[in-house]
């Protein structure tokens, strides 16, 4: 499931869990992407501090670690908001008017790919989340919403008290 959910593991445990993930792969540099997945799941995002620690442990140049982390859209170098709307911009959703949904969220919250200054809402886009039959689709905090309308988004935003 999308790992934007807030860190489930207790704080003190996270370091241990990350260490375990690295040792499972014998601290091999080849496992960088696996380790970054685990780190992001545990901490929600990849801070410079975390990246440095991973680079040291896997004995990789820091620039290579950041190069990989920044190449993949899944990895986030900044903290995510309390709630995340991911609008699907795959072909089926585009044909069904998904651009209108992005427009609405950008107007009410913030530009796609960013988080509102108060940390309440992150707006993201994705390419085909596999629910084309239900287009246009939005992933809202991990759950797929089907046949979404701009008005439906308005209602949800009101409910969570977004400005």
């Amino acid at each position: 499931m999308p790992p934007n959910a807030p860190a489930a593991a207790p704080k003190d445990n996270r370091e241990k869990l990350l260490e375990r993930a690295m040792s499972r792969h014998q601290y091999s540099g080849d496992a960088l992407i696996e380790v970054l997945h685990t780190a992001q799941e545990l901490y929600g995002f990849l801070s410079p501090h975390l990246l440095t620690a991973i680079a040291h442990k896997l004995r990789l140049p820091p620039s290579r670690v950041l190069g990989v982390a920044s190449f993949y859209h899944f990895f986030s170098l900044k903290p995510k908001g309390e709630h995340t709307f991911t609008v699907c911009l795959g072909t089926a959703c585009y044909v069904a008017g998904a651009l209108g949904l992005v427009e609405r969220l950008e107007k009410r919250c913030c530009k796609a790919g960013t988080t509102t200054p108060d940390g309440k809402v992150s707006v993201e886009t994705a390419r085909c989340i596999g629910s084309c039959g239900l287009a246009p689709a939005v992933i809202y905090d991990g759950a797929v919403l089907a046949r979404v309308t701009p008005e439906g988004l308005d209602r949800e935003l009101e409910r969570i008290g977004a400005k």
């Binding site: 620039s63 950041l66 920044s70």
Partner: peptide, 14 residues
């Protein structure tokens, strides 16, 4: 760092 048109050369952790 990054990809596509957003690529940029970085040193260490940027």
């Amino acid at each position: 760092f990054g990809r596509g048109a957003g690529s940029r050369i970085i040193s260490d952790l940027g």
